[in-house]
Amino acid sequence: MSETDTVSFGYEEVAPEEKTRRVGAVFSNVAAKYDVMNDAMSGGMHRIWKDQFVRRVKPQPGEAILDMAGGTGDIAFRMAARGADITVADINQEMLDVGVERAMERGISGLVWSRQDASDLTYPDRCFDAYTIAFGIRNVTDIPAALRETHRVLRYGGRFFCLEFSTPTWPGFKQAYDAYSHRLVPKLGKMIADDEDSYRYLVESIRRFPKMPEFARMIREAGFAQVKVEPIMGGLVAIHSGWKI
């Protein structure tokens, strides 16, 4: 990415460093109410999606798994329950703090918590068996760089799984969902988290995220093989996966 390039921050085009700063501010603002808002926005469906996601990852006892953008621990807790050794990474310290507190409340120990930039990880080559990221990749400033870093830190035979909002393809559903998300989600953000602007950005970031075939192509270009896409609810969300071989 050259210095003259811009990236999307919602519907705006901004400098990469400006997006990183603004995204950091968004998640600092919403950290304390993040999980409550997830329930409100999805009607609790995000819990079902995350359960399905972890079933696809198939964490195994003793595996080293990096859960990137893992913040509040939702995915990490599910995978740790299956015996995997989980490192939870997030660029935002406030989100990590919420996750650590939640782990203590639940009596969950043994997780490693680390502040990391997805596009510039501090881990050595080939040190993880799997890499997961749920509802986080669209907020990364340089997604191709993050995917290359993912490939780098995975061992040969390692797997990448990403759960992210996408573009619904069911006739009529896309229009209804667009109306709901643009009109109601920011109002929910105002009512529950006293932060309308952050949730307006989160809705806009979903609209700007690449469609399923395009994101699959980006994963392949990062070096992954056997790339698959599993749409959920007609593509409202999707699980993308690939293998390092």
Rank of each mutant, 00 (worst) to 15 (best):
S2K: 13
V14G: 13
V14C: 12
P16I: 04
R21G: 03
R21L: 06
V23L: 03
G24D: 01
A25K: 13
A25R: 14
F27R: 03
F27Q: 04
K33C: 14
V36D: 00
M37R: 14
N38V: 01
M45L: 14
R47G: 00
V54F: 04
V57P: 12
Q60M: 05
A64W: 06
I65P: 00
T72P: 05
G73Y: 06
R78S: 06
A80H: 10
A81Q: 04
A81H: 06
G83S: 10
Q93F: 15
E94G: 07
V98Q: 15
V100S: 11
V100F: 10
V100T: 09
R102N: 02
E105Q: 05
R106G: 00
G107W: 14
S109V: 09
S109E: 13
L111F: 07
S114I: 04
Y123M: 07
D125W: 05
D125K: 07
F128G: 03
D129S: 11
Y131I: 09
Y131W: 12
A134S: 03
R138I: 05
N139G: 07
T141M: 02
T141E: 01
D142N: 08
D142F: 08
I143K: 11
A145Q: 10
A146L: 14
T150A: 10
R152V: 06
V153F: 01
L154G: 07
R159I: 07
F161L: 04
C162R: 00
F165A: 01
T169W: 01
P171N: 08
K174Y: 15
K174I: 11
Q175C: 04
A176K: 11
Y177F: 03
A179M: 12
A179G: 11
Y180Q: 07
R183L: 13
K187D: 15
I192E: 01
I192G: 02
A193T: 15
A193P: 06
A193S: 06
D195Q: 12
D197F: 06
Y199H: 09
V203L: 04
E204N: 08
S205R: 15
K211N: 01
F215G: 00
M218N: 05
I219K: 00
I219E: 00
E221L: 12
A222W: 01
A225T: 15
Q226N: 04
Q226T: 02
E230L: 00
I232L: 14
M233F: 04
V237Y: 00
A238K: 00
I239D: 01
G242M: 05
I245V: 10
